[in-house]
Computed example of a mutant assay.
Amino acid sequence: MKLYKFKISGKTSVFKRSDQNGSNTYSYTLLTQQSLKGILGAIIGLKGYDNSGLSPLIMDQSLEFNEVFKNLKISIIPVFSEDNFMYYYNTRTNATGLANKKDAREGVSLLLREQWIVNVEYMVYLDVSLIEEKYREKLEHNLKNEEAEFIPYLGRREHFAKVYDFELVDGIKEEGKAFVCISTLPRADVNGVEQISKDSDDIIAFSEISPSSITPDFYHTFKEFVYTNQKVELNETDVEGQYYRVNEGTLCLY
């Protein structure tokens, strides 16, 4: 099977957690499934949150990229090194007087402390076989030529995303049930993990519950995803992801 492969990187990213709303905000550590669909939508010019009609004055209340990519299968591989995926806390001041009230007084400045993820890099694989041809062709053209209709960003528009190194690669169906998965994968697929590193300092084991899709009335649905450099054993049945071997190893498309 042919897969789209490309890289995404940025100096900073903020994928704000949706389960909080206060002066201290935190970010999902890794690129989420829903955010990646938004980036791809920006690349080919589909309507997103900023131009979706999320206003009482506009009747069209759809997220076009969500509909176009509803059958898209993706694989996200974080590229770790010593100086990336670091946490940074940025403090901003909102002095407009419109964002905070205190003791019935209006016009109080609001201090916002945000968690940023610094120096992020991902390798992404896509199975676009179920995407409508006109969108598939435009996506391939824009990825290949490093073009975008709208500026892609990593969570918010000041966190620019660089999308590059596109190529078409072959994926071969993985027949085994135990292997090292180089990408994130649904936690529900994993029956067990076997440690293969002799030194505990070499072990990476990470899990996060993050948005996987959004409903027509704009509620996120969530799944738990895991990433580890150890050998995983899949369930015998009820496996959500599709597992393929590429040059770098075995990955999960979900």
Rank of each mutant, 00 (worst) to 15 (best):
M1T: 08
M1C: 09
K2V: 07
L3R: 12
K7A: 01
S9E: 08
G10D: 02
T12Y: 11
S13R: 09
V14I: 06
K16T: 12
R17H: 11
D19P: 06
N21E: 15
G22L: 12
S23Y: 03
T25L: 05
S27K: 12
L30A: 11
T32K: 03
Q34K: 15
K37G: 05
L40C: 03
L40E: 01
L40V: 03
G41A: 02
A42Y: 05
I44V: 03
G48R: 01
G48T: 00
G48W: 00
Y49P: 08
D50M: 12
D50Y: 09
N51Q: 07
G53M: 04
L54S: 06
S55R: 10
S55V: 07
P56W: 04
M59R: 13
D60E: 10
Q61N: 05
S62E: 10
E64G: 10
E67T: 06
V68L: 01
V68P: 01
F69D: 01
K70F: 13
K70I: 14
L72T: 01
K73W: 05
I77H: 02
F80G: 09
F80H: 10
S81G: 04
D83Y: 07
N84C: 06
N84R: 07
N84H: 06
M86F: 15
M86A: 14
Y87T: 09
Y87N: 13
N90I: 09
R92I: 08
T93A: 00
N94H: 04
A95T: 03
G97P: 03
L98V: 08
D103I: 07
V108P: 04
S109E: 01
S109N: 02
R113E: 06
E114T: 10
E114N: 11
I117T: 14
V120D: 13
E121K: 01
Y122K: 02
V124Y: 08
V124R: 08
V124I: 13
S129Y: 09
S129K: 11
I131T: 00
K134S: 06
Y135M: 13
L139P: 04
E140W: 12
E140I: 12
E140V: 12
H141K: 14
H141L: 14
H141D: 15
K144V: 06
E146R: 15
E147W: 01
I151Y: 13
P152N: 04
G155F: 03
R156Q: 05
Y164S: 09
F166K: 15
F166M: 14
F166D: 13
E167I: 11
L168Y: 04
D170A: 08
E174V: 09
E175N: 02
V180G: 13
T184G: 10
L185F: 02
R187D: 05
R187C: 06
D189V: 08
D189R: 07
N191M: 00
N191I: 00
V193H: 05
E194D: 14
Q195I: 06
I196W: 10
S197W: 12
S200Q: 01
I204H: 10
A205R: 06
F206L: 02
S207R: 14
S207T: 15
E208Q: 10
I209Q: 15
S210P: 13
S213G: 12
P216N: 07
P216Q: 09
H220W: 00
T221C: 05
Q230W: 13
K231M: 06
E233T: 07
E233Y: 05
L234K: 09
G241H: 12
Y243T: 11
V246Y: 09
E248T: 04
E248C: 04
G249H: 08
L251P: 00
L251H: 02
C252H: 09
L253G: 12
L253K: 13
